Amino acid sequence: MRVVVGGGTGFIGTALTRLLRSRGHQVTHVSRREGEDRISWAELSRSGLPLCDAVVNLAGENVLNPFRRWGDAFCQEIISSRVETTRSLAKAIAAAEQPPRAWVLVTGVGYYRPSPTAEYTEDSPGGDFDFFSRLVSSWEAAALIPGSPTRGVVVRSGVVLGRGGGVISQLLLPFRLGLGGPVGSGLQPFPWIHIQDLCGIVCHALEKESVRGVLNGVSPSSPGTSSGGFARALGAALGRPALLPLPAWAVRAVLGPQRAGMLLEGQRVLPQRTLDTGYQFIFPELPAALRDIVA
């Protein structure tokens, strides 16, 4: 299978590319610069989609970058890096003489309203209550190609855990020093997924012709995981205490109130349709997932 991956040069994209190639698929990235096995977004606009069997979009500015001040300019970058890249790929798919068979977009569980008690499946409503939920709605709407023969799949990902990037890379040093702990109250749900499973779900969606629509990219045990439970599990995997909380006021001071909500609130999300399609999780439980990452 020939796969075009938008924004596939970061933490998740590198892992997905490795998995795709290990399964015998060819990968071309769409990124800011051209190069070996790459085309630029400008080239995509000029020349259209390379001949391929499937397209995946992973592009998106890092929302939780603490070095970027929250403001209109950064918000626009966040929107453009997701919605416009998705729209560009959807437009190229629609214009292709030989359309790809599958089109997979990875978004986020921020679509669902944070709640300490509500549980959400792929059929649950959302997408209309704050900046991030509306962003996901616009992002997913940009992927729609009415009348296209290309099969569409959206994977709404939780917090991605893996080596070399994501939230773990920011937490390892303080936790190794014994300075880790829960964020805020520690009671908020923590929807998570191991990077091998997120990439596995994307490959599953590409390779299984019957898969279409929304899949929740979270671990089956994720609904029972709190922020405090995650901190304790990470401390246990490292053999360190996890007793020092990061106060909510400090999170708000660094990230601003809108972004802070992503860490101080959470959703209990179930991968119901993901499991129904036959995907088998490699790391369904948090302790094993963390041991694999920090080993």
Rank of each mutant, 00 (worst) to 15 (best):
A92W: 00
P257N: 13
R176M: 13
S22W: 09
R291D: 04
A295D: 08
R151S: 10
R32F: 05
R18E: 14
A288H: 14
T277M: 02
A94H: 05
R291K: 12
G217K: 01
P189H: 09
G261E: 15
L16A: 10
Y279N: 09
V154N: 04
F132T: 13
V55Y: 01
E265A: 13
Q196K: 12
R33Q: 15
A92D: 02
S210A: 14
D123W: 00
R252K: 14
S47K: 10
R151C: 14
V218Q: 05
E265T: 13
D276G: 14
V63A: 01
M1E: 06
R268G: 03
V106F: 00
E43Y: 03
R32K: 06
E140Q: 10
S227H: 03
I293N: 14
I201D: 02
G229T: 05
E34T: 14
V202E: 00
N57R: 10
Q258A: 14
R151P: 03
V155I: 15
I195T: 09
P247S: 00
A236K: 12
R291C: 04
P189I: 05
S80E: 10
G8W: 00
S222N: 06
R212S: 15
V160E: 03
V136Y: 00
P182M: 08
D72S: 15
Q196C: 11
P174E: 06
R151H: 11
A248Q: 07
V3I: 13
F67E: 08
P146K: 09
E207P: 08
R38K: 12
T9I: 11
G200F: 02
F11V: 06
L255E: 07
R259Y: 06
R32P: 02
A95I: 05
V160M: 01
A42F: 05
G239S: 07
Q272I: 00
D197V: 08
F190L: 05
R259I: 12
V160S: 01
V5N: 09
V167K: 06
G71C: 11
L243G: 09
I168D: 09
A54Y: 02
F11C: 13
D130G: 04
E122Y: 00
R101C: 02
G235C: 02
Q76A: 11
R82S: 10
E209F: 05
C203W: 04
C203N: 06
R101L: 09
H204K: 12
M1T: 07
V218D: 00
V218C: 09
Q258W: 05
I39D: 12
S137Q: 09
A289Q: 02
L20W: 11
G126H: 10
V214W: 00
P241L: 02
E122V: 03
L234M: 07
E209G: 15
C203G: 04
P99K: 06
E119P: 04
L179A: 15
Y111C: 07
L255D: 07
I93M: 03
Q76E: 15
L275T: 12
S47D: 15
F74L: 12
V109M: 04
V214L: 03
L244Y: 02
S148W: 00
G127M: 04
R151G: 12
P223A: 01
I168K: 08
G181V: 09
S210M: 09
P146F: 04
T86M: 05
C52I: 07
T121V: 01
V27R: 04
P287H: 06
G35C: 11
G48P: 03
R38V: 13
T117R: 13
V183G: 01
L290A: 11
G48N: 05
R259H: 13
G152Q: 07
I193A: 05
V104L: 03
N62Q: 14
